[in-house]
Nucleic acid binder design. Structure first.
Ligand code: MN
Ligand code: MN
Ligand code: ZN
Ligand code: ZN
Lengths: 140, 140
DNA sequence: ATGTCTATTGCAACTAAGTTGCAAAGTGGA
DNA sequence: TCCACTTTGCAACTTAGTTGCAATAGACAT
């Protein structure tokens, strides 16, 4: 855990985010959890940290490419740790999967969009694809 | 407009939805508008109808395949009229486009999903694909 | 016409996610 | 130590959507 703390502080320094107490705690949680999460998840995990602080912490993380957001349609914005192949320079665009039973949300390996027939003179700038179904744990 | 009223009542009867005053008004508005809309749009258009009634009306419409919902990520659920090729029997699955400038949301012609690489033993049951960019009106 | 029954509507209060202003506390440098 | 700047907590707010309940409107029978 001490090694984890160092690891986490290093990650923050790498992205030029000042490693404060809250940020260390939150990032450590994210790394150990390894799955997408919502602010409610964090509120449960850290009942002493105010939700506004959590939102602001995650906004800072997002702006510095530590996490990306996922709108999976469940009503709560999800966040997931960015991987090395997922930073702003290489356009961290990929798709996601939400399990309709357990509610977990997963990042999927990067896939190209099919060519979609658009009305004339429409231009695509980004896309949000969320697949829904059953994850390995919940599939029968 | 009288013909529109009859038209709208006919549509409701067709789907076994009792044509009440509110339902006639709302459905007429939808048909004439011809674009996806939010409950806020309806609240503006009908300032005497309570929002709970509007939500309930749309839920009724949705359950009877008069409209389908679109989660375009703007924070307000959108609704669009179902077309003949868009009813529950033929699985009204298709994708959508949201203009980032004017905020309009459009239904796209039905397209097949590409084969997406999933983790083992995951099963896709549905999908939500929203493309974002500029519509014809807003594209330069 | 009158009463009765049921579905619809309006109203008000509520929930939940997310935001914001501001003051208190922390951090780090001169 | 003192000062400046950043982070955090708190409370109040915003907005989409929901819910319980009472009022109302039809539909239909008498
Ligand atoms: Mn992801
Ligand atoms: Mn549609
Ligand atoms: Zn699952
Ligand atoms: Zn537009």
């Amino acid at each position: 855990m001490s090694s984890n703390n160092l690891n986490v502080e290093h990650k923050l320094n790498e992205k030029s985010v000042k490693p404060t107490a809250v940020r260390n705690l939150v990032l450590k949680y994210l790394v150990e959890r390894g799955k997408a999460f919502s602010v409610s998840d964090l509120e449960e995990a850290f009942d002493t940290i105010d939700k506004s602080t959590l939102f602001r912490t995650l906004k800072t993380f997002e702006q510095n490419d530590l996490v990306h957001t996922i709108d999976d349609g469940t009503g709560k914005l999800k966040y997931a740790l960015c991987t090395s192949s997922c930073n702003s320079s290489t356009d961290h665009q990929h798709f996601h999967f939400t399990c309709q039973k357990c509610g977990e949300t997963f990042c999927l390996p990067k896939t190209e969009l099919p060519s979609i027939e658009l009305p004339p003179n429409f231009a695509i700038l980004e896309s949000n694809l969320v697949l829904k179904g059953l994850c390995n744990d919940c599939n029968t």
